[in-house]
């Protein structure tokens, strides 16, 4: 039972990270129809941001903040420079553009920084565990869950209560009419990218807590998995992205915990196959997008 609870917390922590990544992808997708492959590079940038600010002697919490802000800024710049020329293009065109941007960025990281991992120390304060009853719970896990919860709550409030958030939801439903009402299209799109950057940055911080180092490929695999989580949840739905992220986290942690040792190497293949199997039954994902045939 205790083992099960512990694994449950692990699943929440990992699922939360996927949920944040998936949410960042979904925010951009719902407004622009763009699947941003370069989302992973935003995560990586957070890592390098923290590494260099720490090197400059900035205190740890501020360095984390700087890392997240750098990702947000980079996301906005990415849109201005690379994605604006293909705005309104077909999903395929936008997807390939973002793939090219992603590839260029990670080759730049390799050449300008280093192909090798750079270590980022994790403060002692959060390495340990606290005991609850007879259970030992990792502080990092608890922190991850708390940060995920606060981020999700914050984003929900922003989207429901602020005019900019409402305008973003309006733009996601009907971009042209939102423009027609005088909503500034560039403003909405920049905000969407800034939000996705912040979410990627926060996910990056959580990822770094687990790994303790950053390398050019850091964001690549988690974001690929987040893509799949988003499709599982239902492409275009923010709620779906969060649900998909948590489900993928649960699947991965369960496989890690319960798969026999000899099979552990196969766990990515198994978890992704499970997801594709779910899609066989639910081609629209768990939260399908409203569509009417008229």
């Amino acid at each position: 039972m205790e083992y099960f609870l512990q694994q449950g917390l692990n699943a929440l922590a990992l699922g939360g990270t996927y949920a944040l990544l998936g949410l960042g992808l979904a925010v951009v997708f719902s407004v622009l129809g763009l699947i941003n492959f370069a989302h992973g590079e935003l995560m990586t940038l957070t890592g390098y941001g923290i590494f260099y600010t720490l090197l400059m002697g900035v205190p740890y919490p501020l360095a984390l903040l700087a890392g997240v802000l750098i990702a947000a800024l980079a996301a906005v710049l990415m849109e201005r420079i690379a994605f604006r020329p293909v705005r309104n293009a077909s999903p395929t065109t936008m997807l390939l553009t973002s793939f090219a941007v992603s590839t260029i960025l990670h080759i730049l990281f390799q050449n300008l920084i280093s192909a090798r991992p750079k270590a980022i120390p994790v403060p002692d304060a959060i390495i340990g565990a606290v005991s609850v009853g007879s259970m030992q719970i990792g502080i990092i896990q608890l922190l991850s869950i708390a940060i995920t919860a606060v981020s999700l709550l914050g984003l929900t409030l922003f989207l429901k209560k602020s005019l900019l958030g409402i305008a973003m939801r309006a733009a996601a439903e009907d971009f042209n009419v939102a423009r027609l009402m005088g909503v500034n299209a560039n403003m909405v799109i920049s905000t969407a990218f800034a939000i996705s950057g912040i979410l990627a940055g926060i996910a990056g911080v959580l990822w770094l807590f687990q790994r303790g180092s950053v390398d050019p490929m850091m964001g690549f695999l988690p974001v690929l998995k987040a893509f799949i989580a988003v499709v599982l949840g239902g492409l275009g739905s923010l709620t779906g992205a969060v649900i998909g992220g948590f489900i993928l986290g649960i699947i991965e942690v369960s496989l890690r915990a319960y798969l026999p040792d000899g099979m552990l190497a196969y766990r990515d293949a198994i978890s992704l196959t499970l997801v594709i199997l779910v899609l066989f039954f639910l081609p629209q994902g768990i939260v399908p997008r409203r569509e009417s045939v008229r």
Partner: peptide, 14 residues
């Protein structure tokens, strides 16, 4: 559409 493309990506990883 894009869901299918992402699933093919999953296939490549698998």
């Amino acid at each position: 559409g894009s869901s299918a493309t992402i699933a093919t990506l999953g296939l490549l990883i698998i």
